[in-house]
């Protein structure tokens, strides 16, 4: 078994939104950044992987196991972090220890307590008394206390200061050290991923735009700039998305197309720009 997650052609139909044909693989031992603008379908995809909502098509395997038939087995080894805690806010951190021991057969109380100490979380405090950063650490403490081999994070860093985000990256890099642990990290703060992510899956408006090695992802796009007169219909046809301003324009193009237009300034793009311009392009902005 060499993959942590295999997702193939999964889809989900909602009244106002459709997720269709999302396919990607996360090899064991690596970090995958899952990116896309708000509303692209990242949380829906994660919920499909976790079997929290019913899928309308496709297959999902985690650790090589079909995710519905082996739901409990998979979840014993999967740690999840959401953008907000999933506990009763009146519970103390000790209560969480008791609850998790009831749900996870390999729950290690001693590790949980050690993690609370390490993260400087007071066990008698109630969940509602914790700051955003502490809640993230709490969810990580829980994830690490039942020997999770896969960590799934859904927008964990919105609302966190740069120091906390930095600490999280360190934690994730440490987590995958032995090559047996994997991370799926959905975020719209892509500067975090620009550094540590090995793979990127990029979705927009319920569709898969790219999945593969992060370095290759960045290399397949170019940020092109030019003057007003350079924005010919031919150029426009090859732009994924662009923005016009007073003296010219800038936009995103696939690298091979950018080579057709040597008159344009072409440079390596940040992941953010790729997302922003793809979004603009889809929405006719």
């Amino acid at each position: 078994m060499s993959d942590a997650i295999n997702v193939k052609n999964i889809s989900k139909i909602y009244p106002g939104f459709t997720l269709k044909d999302i396919t990607f693989d996360l090899p064991k031992g690596y970090i995958m950044g899952f990116i896309g603008p708000n509303g692209a379908g990242k949380t829906t995809t994660i919920k499909l992987i976790l079997n929290m909502i019913q899928r309308d098509g496709g297959t999902v395997e985690v650790f090589g196991l079909e995710n519905i038939a082996h739901d409990a087995e998979i979840k014993e080894q999967t740690g999840v972090v959401f953008d907000n805690h999933y506990f009763v806010d009146e519970w103390t951190l000790n209560d969480i220890n008791r609850v998790m021991a009831l749900f996870f057969s390999n729950w290690q109380s001693s590790i949980y307590q050690k993690k609370l100490e390490q993260y400087q979380l007071n066990p008698v405090k109630k969940v509602k008394e914790l700051s955003k950063g502490m809640r993230l650490k709490l969810m990580l403490a829980v994830a690490f206390s039942h020997d999770a081999k896969l960590l799934i994070l859904d927008e964990p860093t919105s609302g966190l200061d740069p120091v906390a985000r930095d600490e999280l990256l360190d934690t994730l890099a440490e987590f995958i050290q032995d090559g047996e642990h994997s991370v799926l990290f959905s975020t719209h703060i892509t500067s975090d991923l620009e550094k540590v992510a090995d793979y990127i899956t990029f979705i927009n408006d319920g569709r898969l735009i790219y999945t593969g090695i992060k370095d290759e992802f960045i290399d397949s796009f170019r940020l092109v700039k030019g003057g007003k007169e350079d924005l010919t219909p031919d150029v426009k046809a090859h732009l994924i998305g662009y923005r016009e301003y007073g003296s010219g324009f800038e936009g995103i193009m696939y690298t091979e197309y950018a080579n057709y237009f040597p008159n344009l300034l072409s440079e390596k793009s940040s992941i953010d720009n790729i997302i922003v311009f793809t979004y603009k392009g889809t929405n006719g902005l």
Partner: peptide, 8 residues
Amino acid sequence: RDLRISVL
């Protein structure tokens, strides 16, 4: 991990 870059 030390350089904060991708394992790949």
